[in-house]
Design a protein around this nucleic acid. Structure first.
Length: 301
DNA sequence: GCGTCCAGGTCTACC
DNA sequence: GGTAGACCTGGACGC
């Protein structure tokens, strides 16, 4: 017996643009079937249980199918997580107004881009973001897959959820070096998991923080392994888009697509998108990833 | 086969 | 507040 939920979507919502908004859909415990456009995801329900859900778009609604029966409370939690992951409750009205007025950027509103896929928890996004720093995407994939395989709660089909802070805190630094292949990030991951599991640091509260962005960014950078790029990437996940999260990939892409193949300074890039404030970071990211779905493939990653 | 470079950067020490 | 040098890993590249 399976459980099925149906969730309405906001105007301008694009399932494909949201799922392929950046690399997360390709990292465990997400799993994208690009041919059928089904996003699978293992959700940790707590109390020792996890469930695999299949998320798809049908007739302007999102349907979520769980591989097994779910009680009322679990169903509500799955629906909440799906809304959170797909950013269904984000209000992008003024973002779409701004890009619609700008020739060459209307496509963003027309195609419903701008909702950046995120994980059910800030903790997961934070660990993954640290795992993207100073390494190839292949290594990020390896680190995250190893974490999930070793520590994630198992769903009925054998797939695993993302590990909880508690599960991660129990492991040694050696584990993060030898099993996860996290290298010098090993102590960072261990320390982060301990601080979150002990309650010393409440990263989930960043979602509702009233701090000015500059202060919240400073708070994020108190996490070892989180610098400007990682903090600004995390800020995007909580809906603040004035930072650019510069990394080697976007710098190269800007040079290629907007600067005649020549390197551009971060200042120049920031100036280029400054008219879109306070959405400049999101316009920048959409601009850099416009071609990802031109043929509905991610061949240009 | 081996050395070097560098990926979706950050930390520390020192100015 | 700004910057050199170190840092794990593993794939790509030149020789």
């Amino acid at each position: 017996m399976t459980m099925k939920l149906s969730i309405p979507v906001p105007p301008n919502f694009s399932f494909k643009r949201t799922v392929f908004s950046h690399g997360w859909c390709d990292l465990a415990p997400f799993d994208i079937d690009q041919r059928k456009w089904v996003l699978k995801r293992v959700i940790d329900l707590g109390r020792g249980r996890a469930v695999t859900v299949a998320i798809r778009e049908q007739k302007n609604r999102i349907t979520v199918t769980a591989d097994g029966p779910l009680g009322k409370r679990d169903s509500a939690n799955v629906a909440r997580d799906v809304r959170h992951m797909l950013r269904l409750d984000d209000d992008l009205t003024s973002f779409y107004e701004i890009v619609s007025r700008d020739s060459g950027f209307e496509w963003i509103a027309d195609s419903g881009a701008g909702r950046l896929l995120r994980s059910p928890t800030v903790f997961e996004d934070l660990v993954k973001t640290i795992a993207t720093t100073n390494c190839s995407w292949a290594l990020t994939d390896k680190m995250v897959s190893s974490l999930v395989a070793a520590l994630g709660r198992s769903a009925g089909d054998g797939a695993r959820a993302f590990p909880t802070p508690e599960a991660m805190a129990r492991e040694s630094e050696i584990f993060y070096r030898n099993e996860v292949r996290a290298g010098y990030r090993a102590p960072f991951l261990k320390e982060l998991a301990e601080r979150v599991a002990s309650g010393e640091m409440d990263v989930e509260s960043w979602l509702k923080s009233e701090l000015p962005t500059s202060e919240l960014k400073r708070e994020m950078k108190r996490v070892k392994g989180v610098g400007d790029y990682a903090a600004e990437n995390m800020l995007r996940f909580i809906g603040r888009y004035d930072g650019f999260a510069f990394d080697s990939w976007v710098r190269a892409k800007f040079a290629r697509t907007r600067n005649g193949g020549r390197k551009a300074s971060d200042k120049k890039i920031a100036r280029y998108y400054s008219r879109f404030a306070p959405w400049q970071g999101l316009v920048f990211w959409c601009d850099m990833t416009r071609d990802w779905l031109e043929n509905e493939t991610v061949a240009n990653w």
